[in-house]
Design a binder for these strands. Structure first.
Lengths: 347, 347
DNA sequence: CTGAAAGCGCTTACAG
DNA sequence: CTGAAAGCGCTTACAG
């Protein structure tokens, strides 16, 4: 049988309360007593039953998610996933708060993080903007002992405990590699549509993309990056402008959101088919993949990211380890041929 | 506050024992009493605390995994993942038994399933061979109330509760689509290396592969399928034979295991580079991807499959729902550009 | 058919 | 600095 606190208490000749004090590193135990208890723990090979501990503590985990209010499918999905996790709160012993802030808005995100600091939940997850003011807030949250996970986009050199998102450099490299192979020798210009160069995920995708094109596909020329603000209307406008100004565009890499605008601009354009790689599987990109308007979609699973963030924050609060492999967020590659049924996405 | 059994008991004017009887559908409760308790449950919006119930029950879940003893990296990885899950048994309240059987051996798998039936664990997970004898065993296990998950390869029209594996038709389609695009107009023959046509996963991959080639890439001709028994030595021999007999091979789809043999045969072959798609990211395929010997690897995550099987079996035992999206096993596509760091694979 | 009491493995006031 | 007792939400003999 697995040893319990009773076994430790008996072996060390102390009460349950003292065992509990040692187990939870609480102060006010004589060194000699502590040593006896620790010896018993070691000898018995004790490991705590976390479920029983949580039951006794009546522990619930207050967690805050800060999400940007972009009008794009991916962010809406992310929010839906957090809401669904909130529905599971009862069984998972969490209490999940959602705070919405305008997208790409550093002061607004700072304010939200300050509010978290005042509120002191167990943990916070947020889509980072890569700015020094944000890193500074992250440091303060870490000092306050609040567990912290960046979601989707990471924060450079910060005190966050974990990043729940894909490897964006690899995503950019993959996009370039697929585009280069699909174009197969054709030369010309490549349009890159981003959301904003303020966020690290978009910058990293661009970096990986340009590195592979420069290394392996020198006949493809990358045009200056377009910023669509992850907004369909803006995206359509800037992309249509690029098509008008550059008649030799043979490929497009849409590395941000706002793909409804991308698809409209592609359909409005006359001339030979361009090869297109986009991010995030949504109703829009799924349909475009089916029609052959988009050739491949790189995807991150919002549901997995949210569940992973929650697992990591809870584990941090309990001082427990996570299964590292389970928390790795995959880069999904979808072609027309491996589309999952709608509504079955997930970890 | 979340209502508890005490609240129900008070409201229905009965004891805890009676509440428990109703909650767990045990016999021996008068209909009128049952109705009162159920009314209270409904009015209060009660939901059971499963962790507390398991603590009280001292519940552990005996689970059996039946794995084939092939000498290939994927199956070794699968076994390692089950062993790691066994290490987590203490915290997950499982007791995991592993049974090994020779690969592609119907009588051996039948014996193993009969042994499970005699042993009566809560649940069993096994790599299915698609044969009527196996389906018959599955039916008996289902009748005995043993939860059942097929792993990696499914069992047609059987009573299994769940299949923890990828969509193999989509995998085959994806392989064809990538191969066709990478070859980009070149015509010639395609060699297909399978493990065995006895298992459904290999048959389905072939089916999807042939469908897309026939539909979209008519200039590529599929040679008769080679059976490598998922064994490197056999795979190398049959593939080398195919290369010798067919000088016009321009592509290879290795849809089973034994890729050490595939790589040896490819390296030994003179002539123009062939496009190659293989399955499962292992040390061998990872290295071959880096060297450009293999162009893309389709992968299933053994760790995810094992964790998912365990979650599903436990949920079945508890009569609980799973998060469907979390149990969907993804088809991973790896190019040279999106290889995860070694040792970080997983859900 | 029903209930009182003890117990699962832990934690928490409270008393000393 | 340490311990006895009660309790978290549920289940299980046992008695009636």
């Amino acid at each position: 049988m697995k040893p319990t606190v009773h076994d430790i208490a008996a072996r060390a000749g102390v009460s349950l309360a003292t065992v509990d004090r040692v187990l939870n590193r609480r102060v006010g135990v004589r060194a000699a007593t502590r040593d006896r208890v620790e010896a018993a723990i070691g000898a018995l090979g004790y490991s705590r039953d976390v479920a029983a501990a949580n039951l006794a503590k009546g522990r619930i985990y207050p967690l805050t998610f800060i999400l940007p209010t972009n009008d794009n499918s991916f962010m809406r999905d992310l929010k839906t996933q957090v809401e669904q996790a909130a529905v599971r709160s009862a069984t998972e012993r969490t209490r999940i708060g959602i705070v919405e802030v305008p997208a790409f808005d550093v002061p607004a995100l700072c304010d939200a993080l300050d509010a978290v600091l005042a509120d002191r939940p167990f943990g916070v997850a947020f889509v980072a903007i890569d700015a020094p003011e944000i890193s500074e807030r992250a440091d303060r949250l870490a000092e306050a002992g609040i567990a912290m996970v960046t979601l989707v986009s990471d924060l450079s050199g910060s005190a966050r405990d974990h990043y729940a998102g894909i490897d964006n450099i690899a995503a950019g490299r993959t996009a370039a590699s697929l585009l280069g192979r699909f174009l197969n020798g054709r030369s010309g210009s490549i349009a890159v549509l981003s959301g904003s160069m303020l966020v690290r995920d978009h910058r990293e995708r661009l970096e990986g993309f340009e590195a592979v094109l420069a290394g392996e596909f020198r006949h493809l020329r990358v045009l200056p990056v377009l910023e669509g603000r992850d907004d369909p209307i803006v995206a359509e406008t800037v992309l249509a402008g690029a098509f008008a100004a550059n008649r030799d565009i043979v490929g497009v890499y849409s590395l941000g959101a706002g793909n409804r605008g991308l698809v409209r601009a592609l359909k409005a354009r006359a001339g030979a088919k361009v090869a297109v790689i986009a991010h995030e599987l949504t109703d829009t990109t799924r349909a475009a993949l089916g029609e052959g308007v988009i050739d491949a979609v790189l995807n991150q699973d919002a549901g997995h990211e949210v569940r992973s963030a929650i697992r990591v924050l809870k584990a941090k609060a309990d001082g427990l380890a996570v299964i590292a492999a389970q928390e790795r967020i995959r880069l999904d590659i979808f072609l027309r041929d491996n589309l999952p049924e709608a509504g079955t996405m997930g970890e």
